[in-house]
């Protein structure tokens, strides 16, 4: 056993990368759930984003165009969810699961000619002086732009939800859609926007995996990250900054266990892999004292005539 082999600076820097897809998907889903909608199709939207982004950046040579199209791809898929749950008033749990099934299938059809291809590199932002600083440099100033975008998005969502009028309406819709409707807010329109935003974020998260973290395209490559994102939203008790902390914690556990293994520490891998989920359950129990956190209308169907 040689714990000194673990470099804490690199550990933190790489857990930030591991956490970013999770963070992007979770922050989108957080907004969706704040609007009172439970979309279990995150995994499906992520994988569609992963292939859309990959294909476009390979074709155009521009990773940023790829990310843009990944967001569009995720949003387009989520549009199906909008039609089902907002207009056809279908059950959200079943629609979300169907979305994941559909997304996994359509992504592998789309990706058949992209197996084994290398995407263009995204590159890192390199700031003179700052990036060269010891410790602080690798952790804060040597990443790709999308990672910073993810953090900025958390801040933006936080401001939006907390201080903007639209955020207020969104939360009102999520708490009690009948009351919001009575006040004259367009419940369906607000929710549609939230779901599209969630789809776009999930798409970005997927593309982060296929364009930066791995980077390549393979079928089923998101491998369950979308589901962890769902757990993360709960873990964060629907608060943006907690989602950031949670993403680093969840991503950190994966990276840490690999680090411990490499350092020769005998750890029961399966039991460590369980821990984020057990911690989430624990958080749920602790949070239960605070009834205000979960959107009250989460998962309920709204129709104006009700």
């Amino acid at each position: 056993m040689d714990l000194s082999a673990i470099n804490p600076v690199l550990l933190i820097a790489s857990l930030m990368v591991a956490a970013t897809p999770l963070l992007l998907a979770a922050i989108g889903e957080l907004v969706v759930e704040k609007a009172g909608v439970l979309n279990l199709g995150v995994e499906g939207m992520m994988i569609v984003g992963a292939i859309s982004g990959f294909a476009i950046s390979v074709e155009t040579g521009s990773p940023y165009l790829g990310f843009l199209c990944a967001a569009i791809g995720g949003a387009v898929l989520s549009l199906l969810f909008v039609i089902l749950t907002q207009y056809a008033l279908a059950n959200q749990v079943a629609s979300g699961l169907a979305l994941t099934l559909f997304g996994l299938g359509i992504s592998s059809l789309m990706g058949q000619s992209y197996v084994g291809i290398k995407p263009p590199a995204t590159g890192e932002i390199w700031l003179p002086i700052l990036s060269d600083l010891p410790v602080i440099g690798p952790i804060f100033f040597q990443h790709d732009p999308i990672l910073y975008f993810g953090i900025a998005l958390v801040a933006a969502v936080w401001v939006l939800l907390k201080y903007s009028r639209f955020g207020l309406i969104l939360r009102a819709v999520g708490e009690n859609h009948d009351a919001a409707h009575a006040l004259g807010y367009k419940v369906v329109r607000v929710r549609t926007l939230a779901i599209l935003f969630g789809g776009a974020c999930a798409g970005l998260g997927g593309a982060y995996i296929s364009l930066i973290r791995v980077p390549q395209w393979t079928e089923g490559m998101t491998a369950g990250v979308g589901w962890i994102a769902l757990a993360l939203v709960v873990f964060a008790s629907w608060k943006p900054w907690r989602a950031l902390i949670g993403a680093y914690l969840f991503g950190g556990i994966t990276v840490l266990q690999l680090n411990l293994q490499a350092a020769g520490v005998a750890i029961p891998v399966e039991y460590l892999a369980m821990s984020p989920y057990l911690i989430t359950i624990l958080v749920l129990v602790i949070l239960s004292a605070d009834k205000s956190s979960a959107p009250a209308a989460l998962g309920r169907i709204f129709h104006a005539s009700n």
């Binding site: 199906l80 039609i83 089902l84 056809a88 008033l89 279908a90 059950n91 079943a94 629609s95 699961l97 169907a98 979305l99 099934l101 559909f102 997304g103 996994l104 299938g105 359509i106 992504s107 592998s108 059809l109 058949q112 079928e219």
Partner: peptide
Amino acid sequence: PSAAIQVFQGMLLFFLLALDLLTN
């Protein structure tokens, strides 16, 4: 490809869920 079958199943679910609307 097996993916085509997955998409097909997904479609079936979408249509069933969407058309369910007509019941109520």
